[in-house]
């Protein structure tokens, strides 16, 4: 055979190339994003039980804490999903930046939204917030001591049992304006991120076309608003003294 015969790349190289193509990474963004949205909705539904009072909330918290191995599998899964989402985003953003090294004097934007233009920045805000949120409620290393009381270690003593009083930590945290504002700002960022992200997911999946285009274009902002309002309702209600008031 002549040397001009094209040689196919080794199978492993081809696999890596196929998995790291722009569209493959977009699919990774979409799938991990969708998993994230599922978790966010579940997380919100769980937390909204704070409106049902101390016992209901602590029952739920005790159940979740008692899942044992399953809890760690879920945590590992969520961390993997987040890692893939952030990792794919970093690669895609770097490619996008390299694709336009020289800026325009001005480029008029006609169709895009603010949320779409600032997805990466919103993502960075959310990443920083996730670190704080886990340090706050999950690990109990920040924002746990108020008025000399360690609320992370606080116990609820009932007739049947003694268990952690997460409700008290929840309430007292959001009674602090600084913490409440941090959570409200983070959830506005989350709402904007979801507004563009959810719709984008279905466009990447190739579903949001034709007569399905409009419903999916509405779905993103709708889920963003639902999650934003649902999550913000908690610090606002506590701050206003509507729940957990003395």
């Amino acid at each position: 055979m002549s040397s001009a015969t094209p040689t196919s790349a080794p199978p492993f190289d081809r696999l890596v190339k196929a998995l790291t193509s722009t569209i493959s990474l977009k699919i990774v963004m979409a799938l991990t994003g969708l998993a994230g949205v599922g978790f966010i909705l579940f997380h919100m539904a769980g937390n909204l039980q704070v409106f049902l009072g101390r016992d209901a909330y602590n029952d739920y918290a005790e159940f979740m804490q008692g899942l044992g191995a399953l809890k760690w599998v879920a945590r590992g899964g969520l961390l993997t999903v987040l890692g893939l989402h952030v990792g794919a985003a970093v690669v895609l953003i770097q490619r996008n930046q390299r694709a336009r090294p020289e800026r325009y004097a001005g480029l008029e934007q006609k169709r895009t939204s603010l949320a779409a233009m600032y997805m990466a920045e919103l993502g960075m805000v959310l990443l920083a917030f996730i670190v704080y949120h886990i340090a706050h409620f999950t690990m109990g290393v920040v924002s746990i001591e108020f008025g000399g009381v360690d609320y992370y270690a606080l116990q609820q003593v009932t007739e049947e049992s003694t268990r952690r009083d997460l409700y008290a930590h929840f309430i007292v945290s959001f009674q602090q304006p600084g913490i409440a504002i941090t959570y409200i700002v983070a959830n506005i960022a989350l709402a904007a991120h979801l507004a563009h992200g959810v719709t984008s997911t279905f466009k990447t999946a190739g579903i949001a076309v034709g007569r399905w285009k409009l419903p999916f274009e509405v779905a993103g902002p709708a889920i963003g608003v639902i999650v934003g309002l649902g999550n913000i309702s908690m610090p606002l209600a506590i701050w206003a003294g509507f729940i957990g008031g003395h």
């Binding site: 569209i23 977009k26 490619r95 006609k110 779409a116 563009h196 719709t199 466009k203 990447t204």
Partner: peptide, 11 residues
């Protein structure tokens, strides 16, 4: 070729 990726702006 070094083109960027779509982020669904519609521009």
């Amino acid at each position: 070729e070094g083109f960027g990726g779509c982020t669904n702006h519609g521009e």
